[in-house]
């Protein structure tokens, strides 16, 4: 009986070794990644020059801008 309890407790102890452990210091917060501060790209105002156009703080409009840039790498689309 004691041997069985020992075995079960050892098994449980061993199993904890396989557990997925949270590897980052702190969970992600907006504007703070894993406890590190960084400005998000869309929180910057667009450049005063060039064709960049999005609203500061508006993620969707920034992503649209990136998408436009992205599609410039598509030469089948670009020549149309």
């Amino acid at each position: 009986m004691r041997a069985a309890i020992l075995a079960v407790s050892l098994l449980a102890l061993g199993a904890t070794g396989c557990m997925e452990v949270e590897q980052t210091a702190s969970p992600q917060k907006s504007g703070k990644y894993q406890g590190k501060p960084d400005t998000r790209p869309w929180d910057n105002a667009p450049l005063a020059y060039g064709d960049a156009s999005w609203k500061q703080g508006d993620r969707t409009s920034w992503e649209n801008q990136i998408r436009t840039r992205n599609l410039a790498q598509h030469e089948y689309k670009r020549v149309q």
């Binding site: 790209p41 910057n44 960049a52 156009s53 999005w54 840039r69 790498q73 030469e75």
Partner: peptide
């Protein structure tokens, strides 16, 4: 460059895409 609404320079200038 991302904060300027641009993508990485390497990919954007690749000559053969």
């Amino acid at each position: 460059r991302l904060s300027e609404g641009k993508l990485p320079a390497c990919a954007e200038m690749c000559s053969t895409k």
